[in-house]
Amino acid sequence: MSLTRRSILAAAAFTLASATAMTGAFAQPADMLELKLALGTADVNFNPTTASVYRLADTLGFYEKHGVKVEIVALDGTPQAVAALNSGAVDIADISIDAAVRLRAENDVAIKGFTSVALGNPFLIATKTDITSVEQLVGRSYAVADNGSLDYNLSRAVIDSFGVDIDGPDFVAIGAPDIRVQALAVGRVDATTVSFGTYQSIAGTEGVHILVDADEFAKRSPGQSKFVAALEPTLEGKREALQRFTNALADASRTMQQDPQIWIDAITAAREDLTPEAIKSTAEINVRRWCVNGCMNPESLDKTVAYAYSTADFAEVKEIPASDVYDASFAEKMMETLGKAEGNILDAR
């Protein structure tokens, strides 16, 4: 369900007033630059994680405030987003960092991430209740978006961390997170990896439980898994538009982090399938995860790339410097413009 007009306008009025107060005097650009952004279906449909900022920045007026018009193109998972980016169908795409490394290392694609909306993987492994250990996933059907998708790669990494053969589960590509979690709820598959927000839609369903919770999943996977990437010619040719986009996302993220009720109101209007209790608990998990400083800390990104190379899936991938796949200058300039956000946050700088 889309946000109602009344809820959008009410939230937007309050949000923009708050944002202006928090960022100080801000001269809105006179022109409006345009970008096409590829997102996975879950994020287009208002995923109840910090990735919801892509939609909120639009509906609450942050893109307009910063002078950028963003057309969101819905695609089914990282592989399709990468293909659209590589073909020129979109300017920017939210993709997994390991996908960017593969593109650069194996295909010499000049691609770099420049901003992000998520820090600390929000995923968990949900299964039928007869599966009580990761070892018991071997031979069971495991729903993923696609071969090579973010959830597929992270699931394999976490399973491997338990000492279980990464090819043990029977991975089945069935698409978006809401489809996967519903397939689990009705017994069509035995297990899947989804965000904690997506899982809330089936929480309490008989015969389903969480096998690996979000905290344990995060401990066993890289702290940062995705960023918004562009080809190098786009980074240079559309630099001003990308900077405005970066600023808008950070501005919106800071507003959600400082006043979670704005996010709660928006998600309540957009997701009737989630209970008030589920939304509140998800908001509490999100509060430290918002990318208030752009989530482009070189130390964190270097660790993510190093982690990718430590896994079995990267055994044959040519090693490249982590700095080949990211450009932190956009986040740095954003912090110069808006100031650095501080507090009890994962994206502290």
Rank of each mutant, 00 (worst) to 15 (best):
I285H: 07
I95V: 15
E342Y: 07
F14T: 10
S133P: 10
S96K: 05
N153V: 14
R104Q: 03
G187T: 09
A83D: 05
G139E: 03
A51N: 13
A203K: 13
D324W: 06
N47T: 03
T268D: 11
F26P: 04
T49Q: 07
G77A: 09
S329A: 11
A30R: 14
P233E: 02
V90K: 04
A89N: 06
F314G: 10
L103C: 12
V73P: 06
G113K: 03
E236D: 14
S253P: 02
E336W: 07
G294Q: 03
E135S: 15
K238R: 10
V189Y: 13
I279W: 06
E206K: 15
Q200C: 12
A12N: 08
G148F: 04
P298N: 10
D265Y: 13
W263V: 08
V172R: 14
P298F: 02
L37H: 00
S7F: 10
Y199D: 04
I210R: 10
K219L: 12
T23F: 14
L211H: 12
I92H: 03
K226S: 15
A214E: 13
A51I: 03
G40C: 10
T23Q: 15
Y326K: 01
F217S: 02
T246N: 05
I72F: 11
L124A: 11
K128D: 12
V134Y: 09
D43N: 12
D302W: 11
T234A: 07
L119E: 06
A21V: 11
F171G: 08
L35M: 02
E316G: 13
V317K: 06
H209P: 09
A173S: 14
L33F: 06
E272I: 13
V317L: 09
N293C: 04
